[in-house]
Write a protein that binds this DNA or RNA. Structure first.
Length: 658
DNA sequence: GAGCACTGC
């Protein structure tokens, strides 16, 4: 196993529109932060970047002033080919704005601002100009290779910076103060060290704890991929990314750049992989890539443990993942967060181990060794991360308690308070925190307590059959709607016919009703076609039907007749179903505010309706929702409109709470 | 204007 990172050695096919293209790519996103970092620091250590983009950024941002930017490379061929590539990207002739200088070969002129040189060449220049005064920025690429000439250069640059930039700690006060310091800084030198991950800290310490800048991980994943693609032997590549959005972005950029590779370079076959991907596309990753192409899989941590993809030779690990975590409120109105975080050490090892199961393998980690050591060893136990409502109800049935039971890791007191509050609101616990008969009955259903409560409430609204069907769909483990960003519009359009005015809950019910009709009328293959045409996951629908018969079975055991249904009566029917749901979703309700956002009825948060909801952009006085997830905003998902009269029923709960 | 992965009943 080897960890390293470096430049894309070969250039792309000359295309004048490339610069334009590049600017429209997501690559440009991390750029501003990077510029700021270099502007503010005399020395910057850059991790996971390569020497082709940075000098162009710096020049465009005016950081080089009137001086030149030198980019050093350990090898001549890299210096010349990078210069060629960058000149092409800038749309200029080689040797004008962008040039190079290596032994026996030079392409530069008085107008040259970015010059690619071998490190040996720059060492030689020291002999004629000790301060390297014509350069205002020197970028040391491939610093981790630690060639003798690079090390010589690094030592000299330290001295040169003291002379040209002034010594921040030492001599400034002993001289004539401010004026002298200003004079000294007239031609300051910026040093940018591009290094592979593991060595970054060493360079930083050498330069008095210089700032280490971690490049954007999607961007560096792309660069690392092309470096492998161009420099390394054939073999499949697996890239770990946190989520669907990053995967889709990276897929686009790789595809764009792959098109511009020289004709002799093999093509790239990209396979995205994440749980929400339609099953047919998921299975594609197990097929061999088309002849002569390199297979590149972009995956979430689904490829870390759940699935094993054979034949992976190279792994690129961004070191990031998404983590779902419950943020408790003792009122029970907390919400889930779904944010990008650093992975754990065990996860990093697991990811590295995905390479080379059938032969030698390589892992390229886009994080430093220090970063690795500051990662937690392993994931925090679930008891610390998730809502405990369901477990608390079960413990209560066993005569036990979250507060008194001795756990390996104690649950968070807020989380316990949140669970207690929710169960009390649902009527599962009384005001002495004791289990009620209702609570015991709820616990018999294999459902979240809120859904169990909704199920039981449906009997008084004469619609248990409908609510049980709905809850079955809500309880499935897989996703019902299968769509990706590209076909999202089309998928939404084809499912429009299921849409209910009241919102997502009855819409789901309509989908299941429609599937049942189709199931009665047509056979397997046609049924499959039907699901595909509506962008529905048939496995999910069948799972829902299984759950439904289980739930009906539980009802029967308790002599509850589940057959009542609102049937086809539209208006009143929806109302009855949502009234039942409301009984379970008591603290999952919000009301409309003047600015169009919604505010939790029992909690403090302002929330938005998730864009995937049929009620998104619709203004209704009040809503109930299945879940609240904080990503870029606090989004409510699975949303239905509730009436004012329903809202009044909530007021009863609120009074009881106080 | 947008979803990490599991599991159990």
């Amino acid at each position: 196993m080897r960890t390293h990172s470096g430049p894309i050695a070969e250039g792309s096919k000359p295309t004048l529109s490339m610069k334009e293209q590049r600017e429209r790519l997501p690559i440009a996103q991390g750029r501003d932060a990077l510029i700021r970092e270099i502007r503010e620091n005399d020395v910057t250590v850059l991790v996971g970047e390569t020497g082709s983009e940075i000098p162009q950024y710096l020049l465009e941002a005016g950081i080089a002033g009137d001086g030149m930017i030198a980019v050093t490379q350990p090898r001549k061929v890299a210096a010349t080919s990078l210069a060629t590539r960058v000149a092409t990207e800038q749309g200029v002739a080689l040797g004008s704005l962008v040039g190079y200088s290596v032994r026996f070969d030079e392409a530069s002129s008085s107008s040259t601002r970015i010059k690619y040189v071998t490190d040996g060449m720059l060492v030689r220049e020291l002999l004629s100009d000790e301060a390297l005064s014509k350069y205002s920025v020197i970028i040391i690429d491939e610093a981790h290779e630690r060639t003798l000439r690079t090390d010589l250069l690094l030592a000299n640059l330290k001295t040169i910076q003291k002379k040209r930039n002034g010594d921040p700690e030492g001599s400034r006060s002993s001289r004539t103060g401010k004026e002298k310091a200003r004079v000294e800084r007239r031609n300051p030198l910026k040093v940018v060290i591009m290094s592979a991950t593991l060595d970054a800290e060493k360079f930083s310490k050498y330069y008095g704890n210089a700032k280490v800048f971690q490049a954007d991980y999607v961007d560096s994943a792309m660069r690392t991929f092309f470096q492998i693609h161009i420099d390394q032997t054939p073999g499949d590549v697996l890239i770990f990314l946190p989520g669907q959005e990053d995967i889709e972005n990276l897929e686009k950029t790789i595809q764009l750049f792959a098109k511009r590779l020289p004709a002799q370079t093999p093509g790239v076959a990209i396979y995205p992989m994440y749980a929400a991907l339609p099953p047919s596309q998921q299975s594609a990753i197990f097929l061999p890539a088309p002849h002569g192409m390199r297979k590149c899989i972009l995956a979430t941590n689904i490829a870390e443990t759940s699935i094993t993809i054979p034949g992976i030779k190279y792994v690129i690990d961004t070191g990031k993942c998404k983590e779902k975590r419950y943020l408790s409120r003792d009122s029970g109105t907390g919400f889930d967060t779904l944010l990008t975080k650093d992975i754990t050490q065990s996860s990093a090892m697991q990811r590295a181990g995905r390479a080379g199961r059938e032969g030698p393998g390589f892992c390229f980690r886009l994080f430093t060794e220090d970063a690795y050591h500051s990662m937690p060893l392993s994931a925090e136990p679930e008891i610390r991360r998730v809502t405990l409502t369901s477990s608390l109800l079960q413990l209560k049935c066993l005569g036990q308690d979250l507060e008194t039971l001795e756990f390996i890791d104690k649950p968070d007191p807020d989380s316990i308070a949140s669970a207690l509050s929710t169960l009390y609101l649902l009527g599962a616990l009384d005001d002495t925190k004791s289990l009620t008969p209702l609570g015991r009955q709820m616990a018999h259903f294999p459902l979240e307590p809120s859904y169990a409560r909704a199920l039981l409430a449906s009997f008084s609204h004469s619609c248990p059959s409908d609510v049980i069907s709905l809850l079955s769909v809500l309880s499935t483990s897989s996703k019902l709607y299968v769509d990706t960003t590209s076909n999202r519009e089309e998928a939404a359009e084809s499912r429009r016919k299921f849409r209910a005015g009241s919102g997502d809950h009855v819409t789901l019910l309509n989908v299941l009703r429609a599937y049942e009709e189709v199931k009665e009328q047509v056979k397997g293959k046609e049924r499959k076609e039907w699901c595909k045409a509506q962008f529905l996951n048939e496995r999910c629908l069948n799972e829902a039907l299984e759950i439904r018969s289980q739930l009906r079975g539980v009802c029967e055991r308790f002599q509850l007749d589940w057959r009542d249904s609102v049937g086809e009566q539209k208006q009143g029917g929806d109302e009855a179903i949502l009234q039942s749901m409301l009984a379970g979703l008591v603290n999952q309700a919000a009301f409309l505010q003047a600015d169009g956002s919604y505010k939790q009825i029992m909690g403090p948060e302002t929330i938005k309706i998730h864009p995937s909801s049929s009620l998104c952009d619709k203004k209704v006085p009040a809503i109930i929702y299945d879940e609240l997830v904080y990503t870029s905003h606090i989004y409510a998902r699975g949303v239905s409109a509730i009436s004012r009269s329903a809202l009044q029923e909530l007021a009863v709960f609120r009074r009881r709470e106080t």
